[in-house]
Every structure is written in C-alpha cells, then in structure tokens.
C-alpha cells in the first residue's frame, strides 16, 4: 500500500519547474527524497502539504485527497522541517499548550518523555533554541500525536552529528510499527545510506528514479580505470564521468553491462548515494 501517491504534479515558476512528477511512497518504509539544492524537493513537499497549490496533478496521502481532506490528513501526519515557524516569544510549554488541543491523539506523557530525552526545558523560550533544538522540538511534537506518516524536509541540515545519529535511531524506532512510514528529504545522503529503504531522486524538477536502495546499489556501479579504456561509445555508457590526466571515474546504471564491457581492466565499486546524486546531477564529462 502507498501512503503517498503523487500523480503528474506540475508547478511552474519563472526560475524552474517541477515537471510532471509522479511518486509513490510505500507504507512501512523510509523513503529518502534526494537531490541537489534548488531542484524542487521542498516545492514538492510543500505541494504535498497544501502550502503551495500545484498547477496540475494530484496528491493522495494515507488514501485521502489533498486538499479536499487536508484536515483529516494532517491529524495523521507529522511535519518536521528545518524552517520551524513557532512563536519566538513563547516558551516550549506555551507552544505545546497551543498545539496539543488540535490533535485528537495527543500523548502528553510521550511528549514529556521526548522533551527529557532531547534535553529541552519546557521553560525555555523558542527564541533561545538553536536550529537543532527547534528541530528536536518539532520532532517531539510530530512523534507525540501518533503520526502514521512523518514528512521531513531537510530535518538534519542544522543538526550536530551526535543528534543526527540520535534522530536516525529514533526514526528507526518509529519504524518498528509497520504501519508507520517516513519521507525524508535531504541533500545529506549519508543519513539515508543509514536508514532509507527507498530512494527517490529529483533533479531539475523531474523524478529521475524511485527505487529500493538495495536494488539501486546493485544496479549502479562506479567504474574506475585508465583513460585508454575510453572512447566516445564507451563514454556514452556513463551517466556521468570524471576524467583526470591519468584515468577516469564514472557512474553507470547497469553494473552487469559494465562488468562485461571492462572485465578485469577496470575497477567496479559500489556507489554511495552521494556518487549517484553527484554524477547524475552533473551528467556528461567532468574534467578534473
């Protein structure tokens, strides 16, 4: 079952376009939404949440249509973003008093437990919180109303490595319940290397792929070898290639074909998500 179903979502701005994006996010899994900055990840998430109206296309979340069933959807989802807009002059306690009554399934004990775990004092004002602490607070709110789906937009970008790890563990804990799902947009791909099950890659406003992470790592390969192995036909086999005076390093999307082509003459490595993102975003030949 899909918790998010996006069909042909389009939004045109003078600078860029989110172009006919269709995407399914599966229930019970963590889907990482990756892509370089400014390619439309946040716009896509804002369209899912009804903050931006798409020019065309449709969004279904947890089986309900956006924006027609927006209120029902938002009872069942948690939103964590690096832009947390809370009342700066209020304390955490006041913000909680403000937010909690909106949710039918608010769990006060759970919330207090998260505050303790994240070392957030309820007496602290929002304006005194660092960016990371605000994300912690947003996460505490999102996890305290039994959200079935967490939508996270660049949540780790302002966090120190210790809390980033802690947060990833928390998300993994949340996934113990098979009903729960997470979509996690980031350009810090190492976070997704650790926890994501599926990866959706957006580049220049288009969905490049949405696949299981393991399949992706089986399919893609980084090929390293001497420059003499390359000719124009072979160069075309690469999604992106980086050439130096002594050799090359490139990404292919068919490991088997690359193995057949290069045999023992080149080294085939498992790519990281960053490699996939880098070579796909850059494309063609890169000279170092």
């Amino acid at each position: 079952m899909n918790v998010i179903e996006i069909r042909n979502l389009t939004k045109t701005y003078p600078e860029f376009t989110v172009d006919q994006v269709s995407l399914d996010v599966k229930q019970g899994y963590i889907t990482g939404l990756i892509g370089p900055n400014g390619v439309g990840k946040s716009t896509l998430i804002k369209m899912m949440l009804g903050m931006i109206r798409p020019d065309s296309g449709s969004v279904k979340i947890l089986g309900c249509k956006m924006p027609a069933q927006e209120v029902d959807i938002k009872q069942r989802i948690g939103i964590v973003s690096d832009d947390c807009f809370y009342y700066e002059h209020l304390t955490i306690r006041d913000m909680k008093k403000m937010i909690a009554p909106f949710y039918k399934k608010w769990d006060e004990q759970k919330f207090n437990r998260y505050l303790e775990q994240f070392e957030l004092s309820p007496k602290k004002k929002i304006e005194q919180l660092s960016k990371g602490m605000k994300v912690k607070f947003a996460l505490a709110v999102a996890l305290s109303h039994e959200a079935e789906l967490l939508i996270m937009d660049e949540p780790t970008s302002g966090l120190d490595p210790v809390f980033r790890r802690e947060m990833l563990d928390l998300l993994a804990d949340m996934m113990q319940n098979e009903r729960n799902s997470i979509i996690f947009s980031t350009h810090i791909t190492t976070d997704l290397d650790r926890i994501a099950d599926y990866i959706a890659f957006i580049n220049r406003g288009k969905l490049v792929f949405n696949e299981a992470k393991d399949t992706l790592f089986e399919r893609y390969a980084i090929v390293k070898g001497d420059s003499e192995l390359l000719d124009s036909d072979i160069r075309n086999k690469f999604i992106g290639i980086r050439e130096t005076t002594v050799g090359f390093e490139g990404l292919v999307d068919n490991r088997q074909e690359a193995e057949d082509l290069f045999g023992n003459y080149a080294l085939l490595d498992k790519p990281t998500l960053e490699d996939i993102m880098y070579f796909t975003a850059k494309g063609g030949r890169i000279h170092a």
Partner: peptide, 18 residues
C-alpha cells in the same frame, strides 16, 4: 503583527485545521 513576525501562517498550515 505578532502573527506576521513569527510567520504564523506557515506554522498554522501544518496543523489539522483548514
């Protein structure tokens, strides 16, 4: 002005209200 200063609308639209 308190709402505007805190970009309150961006916060409100994340809550389950129309």
């Amino acid at each position: 002005m308190i709402d505007v200063k805190n970009q309150n609308h961006n916060f409100l639209v994340t809550l389950p209200i129309s």
